[in-house]
Nucleic acid binder design. Sequence first.
DNA 1: AATATCCCCAACCGCGCTGCT
DNA 2: TAGCAGCGCGGTTGGGGATAT
Length: 223
Amino acid sequence: MRKPCCDKQDTNKGAWTKQEDQKLIDYIRSHGEGCWRSLPQAAGLLRCGKSCRLRWINYLRPNLKRGNFAEDEEDLIIKLHALLGNRWSLIAGRLPGRTDNEVKNYWNSHLRRKLINMGIDPNNHQLGRTIPNHQVQHNTDDAVSSGPKSKACQPYACDQFKSNEENNDQISNATSCLDDSTYALPDLNLDLTMTIPKRQEHEEPKTPMRLEHTNSPTLLLFI
DNA sequence: AATATCCCCAACCGCGCTGCT
DNA sequence: TAGCAGCGCGGTTGGGGATAT
């Protein structure tokens, strides 16, 4: 049995107060991010470290964009979701000032519905068709080296989409508002190079993560 | 104006990954 | 190599505001 991340009896839960926010901001300004487990005590907060980290990353961090997503941000999220599935942190990494939580919430509350209304299955980015098994071999877990976490979403099968596009009038209608010329993966010209903001000088450079996608360019993610 | 329902989003929870001993 | 601690991620929840009746 895993130990809880903190002694929950002594921690506040729920919405953060302005005083708590200020304590967290002050502490991180003078000591920097990190050591989340010991941070609450050091900062005089009755919160668990996880809660502090989340509050900082999702709300208090400087340079966060608040408010509505621009149209180009929406398009980018849809395209990246088609490629990466529910890898919200990777998707958010391509949207300056946006957090994974924000992107995830926006997807679930707006973009999912938008795709559904357009007749597109938001889980696999297909146009309302069941995907034959042999055409979804290159799923997210195969394409992106990571653990067994991803279970909700099949990435976009570009060859399937192309064949649909040739034969189905519905498709051009449904995808028109997504800018057809860029929505189809083979033409997608996304630079998905990702860099770690702060790498210590003594650290070895990480090996790029290779995303291989049938009929699509190889993508390298430096993480 | 009051009540019900819907929807958004901040926050929580559990689990996997990584690094250290 | 195993065990542990800490961090990060994705899924889920619930409070509260917005909207409908």
